[in-house]
């Protein structure tokens, strides 16, 4: 009874999907039957029975091949909405028998493990693209196999039970562009140390009008200690038309500031998040969970 219960559990936990070879097998059995029927050839009957029995045996051995496999998440990158991200899994075979021809996949990517030794594990890196920000459960892992015979795909889904936080999709105006437009948000205009050629797209506030009046050439003011003391101030309400657009914009700027080592503050209507007070992850997490 114990073995029967185990067998039923195995059968229930593993799903099947016929392949084109399944229909070939059915067609073959029907063809062999007619051949045997017409001529009463026991050889043909035998082959027909073997084909039938092998298909069944393959189904059972295939199920045993998938049963009891375990998967756990080893590492996961930061996830951003609508952005391809990868995570690494450990596929573990706790049984004392080898596993063959495993195709591990989620909805977006797949990897083949030809052989997984007894009580051994293998690392797999898969990718996924979360569609929205906020809490996100990693997609279940589908372990499938055409082993041993390819007339059906046997597969089971392993729930990874791994909750990740998806940050908003980083998109919008690049930080450089923002900085160019908003030089006036930091320092005093008179503190400039020199002039340089005006770059198109920079804030008109940076134009050095006396030079223009004198030479007719657009020149921009260079400020003292601009880079060292720069703290960018992002105002939530001014960042886009709607919340999602604003969050995406802020996420992009936050990432770029981090990459360039620039400090920043995000001004929400009710609070201010400063990179000097909170970790980068905390800020992004706030953005991910905003108004959810």
């Amino acid at each position: 009874m114990k073995y029967l219960a185990t067998f039923i559990r195995i059968v229930r936990s593993i799903h099947t999907r016929p392949t084109k070879y399944f229909f070939m097998v059915v067609l073959g059995i029907v063809g062999l039957f007619f051949l045997a029927y017409m001529h009463n050839y026991n050889i043909v009957y035998l082959i027909m029975f073997f084909v039938f029995a092998l298909a069944g045996a393959s189904s059972i051995i295939g199920r045993l091949n998938l049963y009891e496999l375990e998967a756990s998440v080893l590492t996961a990158q930061n996830f951003f909405a609508n952005t391809v991200s990868s995570y690494t899994l450990s596929l573990y075979n706790p049984t004392p028998r080898e596993r063959y021809a495993l195709e591990c996949s989620n909805a977006e990517s797949s990897l083949t493990v030809d052989l997984l030794g007894a009580q051994q594990s293998k690392s797999l890196t898969l990718s996924c693209t979360p569609s929205r920000r906020g809490p996100f459960f990693l997609p279940s892992l589908q372990i499938g196999s055409y082993f041993p015979l390819p007339h059906e795909l046997l597969y089971r889904r392993l729930d990874l039970s791994y909750e990740a936080l998806v940050y908003p999709e980083p998109k919008g105006e690049p930080l450089e562009s923002f900085r160019a437009k908003n030089r006036s948000f930091f320092g005093e205009h008179d503190d400039f140390e020199g002039i340089r050629s005006f770059i198109e797209g920079e804030s008109p506030a940076l134009i050095h009008w006396p030079s223009y009046a004198k030479n007719g050439e657009l020149m921009a003011k260079e400020f003292v200690l601009l880079e060292e003391s720069e703290t960018l101030h992002f105002y939530f309400q001014a960042c886009g038309k709607d919340d999602e657009q604003r969050l995406s914009q802020l996420c992009l700027w936050a990432l770029e500031c981090r990459a360039k080592g620039i400090g920043y503050s995000i001004h929400f209507p009710s609070q201010v998040l400063s990179s000097r007070q909170r970790s980068h992850h905390e800020i992004l997490s706030f953005l991910a969970g905003y108004a959810l």
């Binding site: 029975f49 073997f50 029995a53 092998l54 045996a57 393959s58 051995i61 041993p148």
Partner: peptide, 16 residues
Amino acid sequence: NTLLYLFSLPIVVLLF
């Protein structure tokens, strides 16, 4: 492969 056939053999005999 032998496992497959061992599994199949009783079924084949009964069917035959």
